[in-house]
Simulated scan of single mutants.
Amino acid sequence: MVEVTTPAARPAGSVKRAAAAVLAAASVVAAAACGTADAAAGSLVGEEFLTIGVQTDQPGLGRQIPGAVSGRYDSYDGFDVTVAKELARNLGFPARKVSFSPVPSEKREEAIVSGEVDLVVGSYSITPERKTMVGFAGPYYVAHQDILVRKANPASIRNLHDLGGKRLCSVAGSQSFHRVRTEQSVSAVPVQAKGYTDCLNKLIAGELDAVSTDDLILAGLASMAAKTGDYMKLVNEPFSDERYGVGLEKDDVDGCEAVNEAITKMYQDDTVRLQLNRWFGPTGLELTTTVPQFEGCI
């Protein structure tokens, strides 16, 4: 097997698996030693290295640490990043064999299908549409879509229906605006943003009336804004269940089952409760610490 010295050196996607298949045909002994048979089968089980896609602009969930080197294991922090690290550990991957890859919301399916990443852990809600393209383990947490406004709330937004005619943030690849406009039939006015930190900046600047997305994301944004004296508040009128799943290759049943076992361990050893309190306890958000019902891997 070709020697690999760092996680970043792994070949990606179909190239990676094609290389493994060639090596397996050339040398049965080498294939057995390096686990290429499993890699050729398309499962993360048996891989030597693990690459995880994460968000970088969601304070409290997934954020690139200012000044840190992109892609390094210690370059990111937040609840989702901690979940990703614990999943990797429970799957048997030491830190030196795990790397992180920044994956924006609109690129998550592409990153999985292309093989750029093995897993995506980043406020990745399980939806029927996404399940046609990728597989999901979990969920590892169930969040709820809510609304964030400036504390003064000049637009007087107190519930979902008050968003009609109001300027609401829309992030490419996120389902949040779609839920308000299409699923809930509320005629909010879309204001495009690059990510949720950009949404917050626009809300502070008065370019938006509100931001609506998962309550964990909103709580992280509110905490971030408070540090600069820009106070926000959650409307506290949730209107959806957001089942945060771990994205992986669509037909990787073995990998999905292994990740579900790893998630279960995180609840059994109290990791989830401790990390939720660490990142969101000070916000006063009501947190759920019981194991969600898994989707199933077949």
Rank of each mutant, 00 (worst) to 15 (best):
M1V: 15
T5G: 12
P7N: 08
V29S: 14
A30I: 05
A31Y: 01
A32T: 14
A33I: 10
A33D: 13
C34K: 06
T36A: 02
T36N: 07
A37C: 07
D38N: 13
A39G: 02
A39W: 02
S43H: 05
L44R: 00
V45K: 02
E47F: 00
E48Y: 05
T51W: 04
I52K: 02
Q55L: 14
Q58A: 11
Q58I: 05
P59S: 09
G62P: 08
R63A: 09
V69D: 14
G71Q: 09
Y73E: 08
D74L: 08
Y76K: 12
D77E: 14
G78S: 05
G78E: 05
F79S: 08
D80E: 12
V81D: 00
A84V: 07
E86G: 03
L87F: 07
L87Y: 06
A88H: 00
R89F: 03
L91P: 03
F93W: 09
A95V: 06
A95P: 10
R108V: 06
E110I: 03
I112S: 00
S114A: 11
G115S: 01
G115E: 01
G115R: 03
V117N: 05
D118N: 13
D118G: 03
G122W: 04
T127K: 13
P128A: 12
K131Q: 14
T132M: 14
G138P: 02
P139I: 05
Y140N: 01
I147N: 02
V149Q: 07
V149A: 09
R150Y: 01
R150A: 12
K151R: 12
A152D: 15
A152E: 15
A155P: 12
L160H: 04
H161E: 14
G165P: 13
C169I: 03
G173F: 12
S174I: 03
Q175C: 00
F177A: 11
F177W: 11
H178P: 01
V180Q: 09
T182Q: 14
E183I: 07
Q184R: 15
S185G: 07
S187K: 15
A193M: 08
Y196W: 11
C199Y: 02
L200E: 11
L200M: 13
N201S: 11
L203F: 02
L203M: 10
A205K: 15
G206N: 06
D209K: 05
A210Q: 02
T213E: 12
T213P: 02
L216T: 11
L218F: 10
G220M: 11
G220Y: 04
A225P: 09
M232L: 08
M232N: 04
V235F: 04
P238A: 10
F239C: 06
E242Q: 10
G245I: 09
E249G: 06
D254W: 08
G255F: 10
G255E: 11
C256M: 11
E257T: 14
V259C: 06
K265C: 01
T271P: 00
V272G: 00
R273W: 02
L274H: 13
N277I: 02
F280H: 05
P282N: 01
P282A: 07
T283V: 04
L285P: 01
L287N: 09
T289N: 13
G296F: 13
